[in-house]
């Protein structure tokens, strides 16, 4: 039987209360929401917090909607809610395509967007999707809130800029008229972590690419992105040869590791092919 080691349990009644509890318990406290990363790690003693602060009841972190020209996703939004939301699907098909291949429907009922990002697993899907669309993360601490570009949010495997005593409260994604996006993943079996996956975001203006975002996961891409490939795309027509070349640059920029999911050359091949496919669909979906 796998059971976590003993810990203190506190249920946060509000966001300020959660901050107060984080301060009281110090560095060895962890926030828990869906728990689908943290609880398995606690069972294996890969994580052994002294205290868990349960934020599942904080409705103020579950908001999901459009605020002006920004899509706002509360950190406590469940994967299932993001997948079910029609507005999200209209503006950002990349999120629906990523969510459909994250774990399974029952796990998605419980796991949260914020939890996935804060876990900072180097193979996590939403990290690539949010990187592609250049989201911003809003982090609240005792001194107030700060906003961090998602491309600066992850500082390494399982490490983010969220300090002890702070809470990721929401993700903000700029909505640009006419932009298109898509997500492509290869997994060994349904619901598994990716062998490789790529997200793409393109905005065309006057027939050329005005804005390009590429997100990559599970292939050792720094900050889940491929900035050289993005820069190559700007100002060019979204035609096959251009997208192929961008995908090649993206694949070259990765540093995949060989593991049970495949060797380096296979993963690099996937990074390129999936980037191309995601870019192609993002281009089809972008207006003008």
């Amino acid at each position: 039987m796998q059971v976590p080691a003993s810990f203190e349990y506190e249920r946060a009644e509000s966001v300020p209360h959660a901050l107060e509890l984080l301060e009281r318990y110090g560095e060895d406290a962890r926030l828990v929401a869906g728990g689908h990363s943290l609880i398995p790690m606690m069972k294996l003693r890969l994580a052994q917090p002294d205290a868990l602060i349960d934020i599942n009841g904080l409705a103020e972190l579950s908001h999901l909607g459009v605020d002006g020209d920004t899509l706002v996703i509360g950190a406590l939004v469940r994967h299932a809610a993001l997948l079910a939301d029609e507005v999200v699907g209209t503006y950002f098909p990349i999120f629906h395509e990523a969510e459909r291949v994250i774990a399974d429907p029952v796990v998605r009922n419980r796991g949260t967007v914020g939890g996935s990002l804060c876990q900072a697993d180097p193979s996590e899907d939403l990290s690539a999707a949010f990187a592609a669309v250049r989201a911003e993360a809003v982090i609240l601490g005792p001194g107030g809130s700060r906003t961090v570009p998602i491309r600066e949010f992850h500082v390494g495997p399982y490490e983010t800029v969220v300090e002890p005593g702070e809470i990721l409260t929401e993700l903000r994604v700029p909505i640009r008229p006419g932009a298109g996006s898509a997500y492509e993943k290869v997994e060994r079996r349904v619901g598994d972590w990716p062998v490789a996956a790529a997200g793409a975001y393109l905005r065309l203006d006057g027939g050329v690419i005005a804005e390009a975002g590429i997100g990559l996961t599970a292939v050792g891409a720094e900050h889940f992105t491929a900035p050289d490939a993005e820069a190559y795309l700007i100002g060019k027509a979204a035609e096959e040869a251009v997208l192929r070349e961008a995908a090649r640059i993206a694949a070259e920029s990765c540093e995949p590791q060989a593991d049970q999911r495949g060797p380096v050359d296979y993963k690099r091949h996937l990074a390129g092919e999936l980037t191309y496919r995601a870019l192609s669909r993002a281009a089809e979906r972008s207006g003008s």
């Binding site: 349990y9 249920r11 828990v32 728990g35 689908h36 609880i39 398995p40 868990l52 349960d54 599942n56 429907p105 029952v106 796990v107 009922n109 419980r110």
Partner: peptide
């Protein structure tokens, strides 16, 4: 181990009873 928590199926091996 799937049960419904407030009407929604969850995997109860990954939910704390206190939750």
């Amino acid at each position: 181990c799937v049960v419904q928590l407030d009407g929604v199926p969850v995997k109860s091996c990954t939910v704390l009873a206190v939750m």
